[in-house]
């Protein structure tokens, strides 16, 4: 039940935080948020670790770690690259 409470509160927080984002930032916001959804890495790490598990389980865990890392590393890096373009221009304009 606590989990559900946290979930609902966080949804409301999310709405409050994001409603006013200007359209210019929609793409970086989306790819940044996308990177955050790679938080499932936590679950993935726990799947991959166990020596006692059968090969298949470790393999699936390894795959889960890899896909989550693509999401996380790729997502944050590409967002940074995009936002760098917004930033450099702002500095150049001044």
């Amino acid at each position: 039940m606590t989990g559900l409470t946290v979930f609902i509160l966080a949804i409301f927080l999310g709405f409050e935080l994001i409603t006013k984002v200007p359209p210019t930032l929609h793409t970086p916001l989306m790819s940044g948020a996308n990177a955050i959804s790679g938080i499932t890495i936590v679950g993935a790490l726990t799947c991959a670790y166990n020596t006692g598990s059968p090969f298949l389980a470790n393999f699936m865990g390894c795959l889960a770690v890899a896909t989550a890392m693509i999401n996380v590393v790729g997502g944050f890096m590409v967002t940074d690259r995009m936002l760098g373009m917004f930033g450099s221009k702002e500095d150049g304009g001044r």
Binding site: A10, I11, G14, L17, I18, S37, I39, V42
Partner: peptide, 11 residues
């Protein structure tokens, strides 16, 4: 996970 997932879901 719950909080960050919910934030992404809302956005």
């Amino acid at each position: 996970l719950i909080v960050s997932g919910a934030l992404v879901g809302a956005s």
